[in-house]
């Protein structure tokens, strides 16, 4: 493994990207899960797919575009999708969650249209859907590093505000914190991380890297800070083992990463049940 890592640039790119998104995705995921916005991540990832399909389509007809990484198209669509969701939520005040299925289906719909118009792609669409160990170029990697740094700095800078917004939105507004602005920045960050993560985990599974590690850590963490740290640890374990497995078994990494995340989740559920509630007997019932 180490030798292949030294030998192949594409593997280095994949692993560095994996390690980075293993931090950013779960960190944002903590806020997403706690604010019950997991579906937004899903909707945005589907919009990202349409962005990728659109750039591939452009690339097919204008050769100049084929040089441009579909990462940008995905990112652009993802951010636009985030803005649309926000707009939609303010239009349908009493049905805020309606924004999510609308944007999600629009994302898939557009994606399918672009793919059909292009009459299929020579590029491996499968890789975009489920991730790939060989898809990240060096230039992509630099963009990913840059975007991730911006995201992490923003999260550190707005940590207090994000905490209070997630914990008690009313109190946040009473305190005079610009909750709308914070929420807006947050949604943009989510859109960026989704676009950045999709090369490794794939569009269809990117939201799981934001939710599964958090679902696991929330069961055992005692504090908010611990929730974040544990989520990142679980995310990293899943990404690194997932990438190694994907490389050796020739499986799309999205699949292996998600399966390992799910395993971690199951282990924490079992661990928590017996560690913190020893009064539960072997049949899963309270002894009292």
């Amino acid at each position: 493994m180490m030798q292949s890592l030294i030998q192949y640039e594409f593997l280095q790119n994949a692993f560095i990207t994996g390690i980075i998104i293993g931090i950013t995705a779960p960190v944002l995921g903590v806020f997403i899960v706690i604010r019950k916005m997991a579906m937004i991540a899903d909707a945005l990832s589907h919009v990202t797919l349409s962005g990728i399909a659109f750039s591939l389509l452009l690339g097919k007809y204008w050769s100049a575009f084929s040089m441009v990484s579909p990462l940008y198209g995905g990112m652009f669509f993802s951010v636009a999708g985030a803005l649309l969701i926000e707009k939609f939520r303010s239009v349908y005040k009493h049905y805020e969650e309606l924004a999510i299925p609308v944007i999600m289906s629009l994302g898939i719909g557009l994606g399918v249209v672009f793919i059909s118009v292009a009459d299929g792609f020579t590029t491996d669409l499968f890789g975009y859907l489920f991730g790939s160990v060989s898809a990240v170029s060096r230039t992509d990697l630099y963009v990913i590093i840059m975007i991730s740094c911006i995201v992490l700095l923003a999260i550190i800078g707005l940590y207090k505000e994000l905490f209070i917004l997630s914990f008690d939105e009313e109190y946040c507004r009473v305190s005079g914190i610009q909750s709308k602005f914070i929420h807006f920045v947050f949604i943009i960050l989510v859109a960026l991380v989704i676009a950045v993560s999709m090369r490794i985990v794939g569009v269809l599974l990117v939201s799981s890297l934001m939710t599964l590690p958090v679902a696991a850590s929330i069961r055992i963490a005692k504090s908010f800070w611990q929730t974040i740290i544990l989520s990142v640890i679980f995310g990293e374990i899943a990404v690194i083992i997932g990438l190694i497995a994907a490389f050796y078994l020739d499986i799309a990494p999205g699949g292996t990463i998600v399966v390992i995340s799910a395993l971690i989740l199951m282990i924490t559920i079992i661990f928590q049940k017996y560690k913190y509630h020893p009064e539960i007997n072997q049949f899963g019932k309270w002894k009292k």
């Binding site: 019950k36 207090k160 008690d168 109190y171 929330i218 504090s223 908010f224 800070w225």
Partner: peptide
């Protein structure tokens, strides 16, 4: 009104009262 089941300690919750001031 807050989200019950929120994984935060009492300390973290009280500290959040300093957010605007900070």
């Amino acid at each position: 009104s807050f989200h019950s089941g929120f994984p935060a300690t009492v300390f973290e919750v009280v500290r959040s009262g300093l957010t605007k001031k900070t």
